[in-house]
Amino acid sequence: MHWLARQMLRLVVVLFCVTLLTFVIVNILPGDIAIVILGTLATPQDIAGLRADLGLDRPMLVRYFDWLGSALTGDLGRSYRNGEPVVQAIVDRLPVSLQLMVMAQVIALGIAIPVALLSVRRPGGIFDRISASAAFGFLAMPNFMLGIVLIYLFSITFDLLPATGFSPMSEGLWENIESMILPSLTLGLIEWTVLMRVLRSDLLTTLKEDFILLARAKGLPQWRVLLQHALRPSSFTLITILGLNIGGLIGGAVIVEQIFALPGVGRLLLGGIFNRDLILVQGTVSFIAAGFVVVNFLVDMLYAVLDPRVRYARFRN
């Protein structure tokens, strides 16, 4: 209970810092929402008037605490730009980003774990070298390029999948998954490389441990040693990176969303920044930050599950 209370406190403190930081940062950005709304013909009087209407002429801290006050009651305001309630905007976009994130991680892990296990069986062997080369090939491939290559391959040449767009669940499960395959593949095919490399590295370290020796001495076959004894304690860095990926992707994958025209959080945020839509950016960043803290909290819990010594240390403190 004590631990949980501390985590809650952590959430609150982090959120406070992040929202304040966002406020400061978005405020110092050059450019002006009033110009975005009024367009290229705006007169200085109109701009000043609109700023006053939006309350942008008040001191920054006053505005921040104003915003914080209503945010605490669950009201993140309405977008300056198009009047859409910010909460609604986030709720609409979030499922897309979450689905993209989950599918991408499944793909990435689905490739990374088997490849890492197979390559540590003989480090420096043929498979290890080939998989490493393949990994770096994908790593050197920016997602803005991989995405378009996948579209040309899978939707045009093979005519299998839609090129762009998002189908919500309500239009059918397969339509929904179909529309998300290429975007998640674009992310997953790049992410597995990092996961594989860190898992491989940790596995190599673990394999030098006494308990692995013991397991081998008992005559266990190689794959059982790897799967049952080595994999779990070798997953620290993997889990950490995974947590970072997931946390990062809650904020959306801007480039992939843009290429595949997915209505995700990333594009929402990018549009908000480019339009200097302070209130939208503020709400979205706070929301992403909250999601992030929760994910990290879960990752910390996973450490404990993976290694009893951490669990013990945690309780001892």
């Binding site: 939707s155 762009t164 767009g165 843009q258 025209a261």
Partner: peptide, 18 residues
């Protein structure tokens, strides 16, 4: 009407018939 920001992906969607 669908906003498709990436020019190449937009063209691919047309070729595909989406």
């Amino acid at each position: 009407v669908r906003p498709l920001p990436d020019s190449d992906a937009r063209y691919a969607s047309l070729v595909k018939g989406d």
